[in-house]
């Protein structure tokens, strides 16, 4: 499954360590929550990484789905009634996929910088829709008062209000998403998607409809982006239009480029490094933007293929 040496190394170090983290942190609520947030972001960034790095579809509107994941849940659920987590996960994924199908149909007609801009435009429209709305809390955001239950046939598997349980849900989700993308890429579908990115004309000549493969990829990535947003909304029970802002899309893109485009596991690396630096610098100085910006610039200059690329070159050297 994990063929690349650096990737194998990363997966074997990261996931066992992540499994142990809540124990090492002695269940300190904040750190467990913070790590869960980063895991959620990693899912979001990974879905973007698949789209940008694997399919060559650059978007600056991925936050559209992140925010939708949260807002769909708010719109679907009754305010004071616990709903079933699995059922609503399905709803959110299904509706987000449908929306992605329509959005993809529009945006995939363009490419390059124009696609960047049209995705941005659609996300901004959605941002203003929720920001101006009176029904969904407007600019101040909206609460989710009661978290879903996780019963399956009357058996409660875990408690979403328990930070450690929630952490493991996020970790499991991240692992599954990574595995899923790996499987997709190894399948025939994935190989054609690769071919589409390498050489669209040739793929068309071979009799494949490039548009269909792009659209399918777009729907998959968008639905998983929405899933990340749904988890984020559930974590603290708070949804705000800023989830849909272009800054959210931009930051995710930064994390993905930083990690190494198209490597998937690089998305986890990029997210953790970016969030770690942010956390470190903001506790160090009020002007955290200065060291943050300088370090981003230095990393772009130093790493040709992101952090994952750097890791690979290290592993290769040892070999």
């Amino acid at each position: 499954m994990f063929t690349n040496r650096a990737e194998k190394l990363f997966v074997w170090v990261f996931f066992p360590l992540a499994l142990l983290m809540p124990l090492l942190l002695e269940q300190n609520t904040f750190y467990v929550n913070k790590l869960a947030t980063i895991l959620i972001l990693s899912i979001f960034v990974m879905s973007l990484d698949y789209l940008v790095g694997r399919c060559g579809l650059v978007t600056l509107g991925h936050a559209l789905f992140y925010g939708l994941g949260g807002y769909l849940f708010v719109m679907l659920t009754p305010e004071y009634e616990a709903v079933n987590f699995w059922v609503y996960t399905f709803y959110v994924l299904a509706i987000a996929s449908l929306i992605a199908l329509v959005v993809g149909f529009i945006v995939l007609r363009t490419s390059g910088i124009y696609m960047i801009m049209i995705t941005l435009a659609l996300a901004q429209m959605c941002f203003y829709f929720f920001s101006d709305s009176t029904d969904f809390g407007g600019n101040d955001g909206v609460f989710i008062y009661i978290k879903p239950e996780t019963d399956v046939f009357g058996l409660s598997l875990f408690d979403l209000d328990n930070p450690v349980h929630f952490y493991y849900l996020c970790l499991l989700s991240l692992f599954n998403v990574l595995l899923f993308f790996k499987l997709v890429m190894r399948s025939k579908f994935g190989r054609i998607v690769d071919a589409v990115q390498e050489n669209p004309e040739r793929t068309t000549a071979l009799g494949y409809n490039v548009f269909h493969f792009r659209l399918a990829s777009y729907v998959i990535a968008s639905a998983l982006g929405a899933y990340a947003g749904y988890l984020f909304a559930l974590q603290y029970g708070f949804v705000n239009p800023s989830m849909l802002s272009w800054q959210t899309s931009g930051t995710a893109l930064v994390m993905s480029i930083l990690g190494g485009m198209g490597t998937l596991y690089g998305a986890i690396l990029g997210t953790f490094v970016y969030e770690g630096l942010h956390y470190g610098f903001e506790h160090l100085t009020e002007n955290w933007m200065l060291p943050m910006g300088v370090l981003i610039i230095l990393m772009v200059l130093a790493f040709r293929h992101g952090l994952a690329g750097y890791l690979e070159s290290l592993v290769e050297k040892r070999k």
């Binding site: 300190n28 609520t29 904040f30 603290y236 708070f238 989830m243 903001e282």
Partner: peptide, 22 residues
């Protein structure tokens, strides 16, 4: 204990939890 909210609502729960729980 000072926290820069950057006026970003989506970060508010996390920062509040940091002051409360940590």
């Amino acid at each position: 204990l000072e926290m820069d909210t950057e006026a970003k609502p989506e970060r508010a729960p996390e920062l509040a939890s940091s002051l409360l729980d940590k």
